[in-house]
Design a protein around this nucleic acid. Sequence first.
DNA 1: TATGAATGAGGGTTCATTCAT
DNA 2: TATGAATGAACCCTCATTCAT
Lengths: 216, 216, 216, 216
Amino acid sequence: MSTTGTRVDGRSRRAEAARDRRRTRILETALKLFAERGYHATHVSDIIDAAGVARGTFYLYFESKEAIFHALLDRLLAHLRAHVVGVDTTPGAPPVERQLQQTVRRLLEVVERERRAIAVVLREAVGLDPSVDAKLREFYASLHAYVVEALVAGQAMGIVRPLDVEIAAACILGSIKHVMERAVMLTPEAPLPIERVCHAVLDFNLRGVLADGAAS
Amino acid sequence: MSTTGTRVDGRSRRAEAARDRRRTRILETALKLFAERGYHATHVSDIIDAAGVARGTFYLYFESKEAIFHALLDRLLAHLRAHVVGVDTTPGAPPVERQLQQTVRRLLEVVERERRAIAVVLREAVGLDPSVDAKLREFYASLHAYVVEALVAGQAMGIVRPLDVEIAAACILGSIKHVMERAVMLTPEAPLPIERVCHAVLDFNLRGVLADGAAS
Amino acid sequence: MSTTGTRVDGRSRRAEAARDRRRTRILETALKLFAERGYHATHVSDIIDAAGVARGTFYLYFESKEAIFHALLDRLLAHLRAHVVGVDTTPGAPPVERQLQQTVRRLLEVVERERRAIAVVLREAVGLDPSVDAKLREFYASLHAYVVEALVAGQAMGIVRPLDVEIAAACILGSIKHVMERAVMLTPEAPLPIERVCHAVLDFNLRGVLADGAAS
Amino acid sequence: MSTTGTRVDGRSRRAEAARDRRRTRILETALKLFAERGYHATHVSDIIDAAGVARGTFYLYFESKEAIFHALLDRLLAHLRAHVVGVDTTPGAPPVERQLQQTVRRLLEVVERERRAIAVVLREAVGLDPSVDAKLREFYASLHAYVVEALVAGQAMGIVRPLDVEIAAACILGSIKHVMERAVMLTPEAPLPIERVCHAVLDFNLRGVLADGAAS
DNA sequence: TATGAATGAGGGTTCATTCAT
DNA sequence: TATGAATGAACCCTCATTCAT
C-alpha cells in the first residue's frame, strides 16, 4: 500500500508523457504537411495517416483542424516573443544598437529552428479566420511598437538621426521579414548563414545604401 | 443583305463590348468579395449573386474560380510591372537615385489605385496553387533582380557603398512591401499620404537610421 | 418575338411543375423510408438513393434532413387541421354530436389516406427537436381546446352531462389517437373499416361502457 | 486464512452491494438525462460524466447504450405489470368495476412514481429498435387483452352493455394513456391529483359524456 | 449567349465501443 | 474491477462544375 501513491503517480506521469509525445507527434506532422502542401490542401485525413493515429484520436488532442493551426501559431509566436525583449536604456546597459543586433540574431536563430512554422504562418495565416488575423496583427503591432520605441530611445540618445519613426519602423520590420521569407521560402532546406545575414541586415538598416559622399 | 457584313461587324462590335463589360463586372465583383471575405470564404455563388449573372454565365467568362484569381493577379502584376522600368544608366539619364524615387512613387500610386487587389494578393496568393505561387515568385524575383541591378550600377557609379547587394535588395523590397501592406491592411479606406511615405521610405533605404557621427 | 413572353412563361411553368414533381418525389420517398425504418435509421443517402437524385439535389429542395421531417409534419398537420372545424352552435346548425361524428369521420379519413405520415409522426416526432415538439404540442393543444369547447357547448345545450371537461377531453383525444395508432401500427396495410371504427369510437365516447341499469 | 471463506463471502456480499449501487447510480443517471434531453441527444459521455464513472465502467454494467434503455424499459414495464392483475370474476370477488378502478388507481400511482421513465418511454421507445418496439407492442397487447377480458366478463355479468369490445378496449387504454401523457409531459413537476384524475377517467370510460336523456 | 437545376466527390466531425494498463 | 485513451465507421453537408434548355 505504501507504493500505491507512487505507482499511481508514476502511471499518470508516464501517461501524461505519452500524451505529450502524441500531441507533439500530431502537431509536428500537421506542421510538416501544412508546410509541404498548404493548410487548405492538407486534410485531416492526411494528418492522421501521416501521424499514424486514428481519426478520433486527432480530435482527442485538437478540437478542430483550425485548432491545430492555432496551436502552431501560438507556439511560434511564443517562441518569437520570447526572443524579443524590450530595449534596455538604463545607464550601463549595452548600447541600443548592440541590443538590436542581439534581437535580430535571436530572431534569425528562431527562424532557423522554426523554418517550417514560419513558412506556414507567412503563407497561410492571414485570411484563415478572424482570430488568426487578430493574433498576427497584434504580433506585428507589438513588434512595430518595440522598434518605434527603440528608434525614439535612440534619437534621445543621439544615435538615431531625425526621421519618420513610424515608417522607419515599418521599413525595418519589412526588411527583416522579407529576408526571413526569402531564406525560408526560396531555400527551404539550406541552413541560414545567420552571421552574414544578421550583419548585412543590420548594416542596411543602420546605414542604408548610400555611399558617404553621395548627394541625396 | 448586302449590309450583312457591316451589320454583323456592328453587332459583333457591340456584342464584344457587352462581353467586355460583363467580364469586367464579374471580375470587379470577385475582387471586391475576395478583398472583403478572402478567397476561400468567397464562393462562386456569392460572386454570381453579387454580379447578377447566372451560374453558368460565370463559366462562360472564366474557366474556374481559380482562373478568376489568376486574371486578377495577372492584371495587378501587369500594372505593377508597367511602372517598374529598368534603371537607365546611359550618360545623360536621370541619376539612379532619382530613378528609384520615381519607381517607388509610381509603385505607391498603383498601390493606391489597386488597394483591394494588392490586399487580396498579399493575403491569399501564396499557397493557393503552385502556378500562382510561381507567378508571384517570378514577380518578386524580377523586382529583386531589378533592385540588385540598380544597386550594382550604383556601386559602379560610386553612389552606392559596398554592401551585400543580395540582402540589401531583399531589405529594400521588404521595406517597401511591408509599408504597402501596412497602408493597405491597417487603414483600408484612408488615402495613402504618398508624398510623405515615398520620401520617408526612400530616405530610410538610402541612409538607414544611424545618426552621422554614430559609431557602428 | 410575340411568342417570347409565352415561351418564357411556358418554360418556367413547365420548370416549376418539374420542380414540384421532384420535391414531391423526394418527400414521398423520405416518408416511405421514415415509415419503414424510422427517422434516425434513415440516412440522407438512403433517401437520395431511393429517390434517384444526387446528393446535392436533396439539399436543393430541403435545407437539411430535419427540414424534410418538418415538411412532412407540416403537411400532415395542415391536412388534419383542415378537417377539424370549430363547433357550430348557432341555431339551425347540425347537432353538436353530429358535428363531432363528422369530425371523427373526417379525421379517420385523413388517417386512412396518410397512414404512413401518421405512423412516422406518432413514432418519431416527439423528442426529435424542440421545434417539432412545439408544433406537435400546439397541435394537440388546439385539438384539446376544440374538444373542451365542444363539451362545454354541449353542456350548455343539455346534451352533455356534468363532468370534468379537461380530463374528459383528454380521454376523448386519447381514445381516438390510440385507435388511430392501433389501426396504423398494427395493420399497416389493411384498409381501415372507417364506418365501424367511427361508430364504435363515438359510441364509446358518448356512452361509456356501462350497461344502463348498472350501478356506479 | 481459516476465515477466508467467510471473509470472501463478506467481501463479495459487500462487493455485490457496491456493484448494485453503482449499477443503479448509472441507471438513474441515464434515466434523468434521457428524460431531460431525449435518448438520442444523450451520449454515453453525458451519462458517465454525470454518474461519475469511467467510460469503460459503463460497459462493465451495461452492454451498450441501447441495453441501458432496455433495462429502463424492462424495469418500468415490470412495475406497471405488477400493478395490473387479471380480473377476478369468482363469486365473492369485488365487483369488476371496483377492480378496474383499483387498477387505474394503481397505474396512476406507478405513473406518479415513475414519471421520468414514463416520459422517456412514451417519447422515445417506439422506433428505437425492433426489439424495443416488440416489447412495447407486447405490453400494450397484454393490457389490451386484459381490458378486453374485463369487458367480456362484464358483459357476461350484465354490467357492461353490448359494444365492440376491441375498439372499446382501445378507447379505454388510449384515454388512460393520453391522460397520463398529459400529466407527465405538460406538468412534469406538479404532483398528479391522483384521486381526481382516477375518478374522472373512470367516470368517463364507464359513462361517456352523454347526458342521460340525450338522443344518440 | 444565357440560364440555373442537377451533380457528386470530398470534407470535417461525432460518438459508441474497445482494450491495454 | 476500474480506467480513459484510442479507435474508426458513419454521417451530414458544401460547393465548384456541368449541361440540357
